[in-house]
Amino acid sequence: MRTGFRGLHPITPLLFFAAAFTVGMTATHPLLLVGCIVSGAVYDVCLRGKRAVKYLFCVLLPAAALITCFNGLFSHYGVTALFRLPGGNRVTLEALAFGGVFALRAMGALLWLDCFNEILTPEKIICLFGRFAPKTALLLSMALRFIPLIRTQSAAIDAAQTGCGNAVRTGNPLCRLKTAAHRFSVLTSWLLEKGIDTANAMRARGYGLPGRRAYTGFFFTPADGVILGLSALAGVLYGILFIPLRASYNPVFDIPLPNAPQAAAAAVLLLILFLPPIFDFTEKKKWKQSRFAT
């Protein structure tokens, strides 16, 4: 059992990330977009450290810059011409901005997807499936068991075949293809034969009885309730703000300024987006200090 977001019932992070992902994918207003990206990036860095920084600066930002430039070079709508290309086409501020916004939306969605991957481990996804599709959940779990097994098995076959000299590692491609085909047939016979063992072991333990249930080791706690409520609130606020804060960049910039209640709603929404790192940090701090009272 982990503290923070990792320890919650899987449904909670699923719905939270769904909300954050939707904001990232569909927001057009720069305020919401930037808020969503910054919160996503902060949480990704909290979760994955250096790897997330590398992902952000070496993959996402260059890709975003590239998309922006592409749109600027190949779309020519808008009214503010910045300069002309040698071919005679204009490069406009609006086209660049539209490309930039598109790239930022993709970036926000990808950052939150990264967090999703880190928090929702295969066990949690299987647990989510177990509720409404127990057979699929079992199938997923079995697949996760068999993939590494097949990998070690084929490595064993490769080593065995090479070690006794049944290998054509050099020479014409046809021979090498034949070697590969033979190894594949060894692997399939092995897997089919051993599949009988698995089926027997499952049957021996009562698989096939009616009324199978899916067990999950996760609880729904009060903290889950609070965070689910806040996720729902974020969804509602975003729904309210979606129309009034819709910005468009073609043919002219039209970025609405929020009025006071809208600004307040947006502030609450952004605060909720920063919830995961705040929650993780406070839990960590809270439990780090627990010692025997002296």
């Binding site: 079992l138 079995m142 063992d197 698995t198």
Partner: peptide
């Protein structure tokens, strides 16, 4: 006998 193929799922808990 077979230790590999009589396990069904991917974690010890499951």
């Amino acid at each position: 006998q077979d230790v590999e193929y009589q396990t069904v799922t991917h974690t010890v808990r499951s």
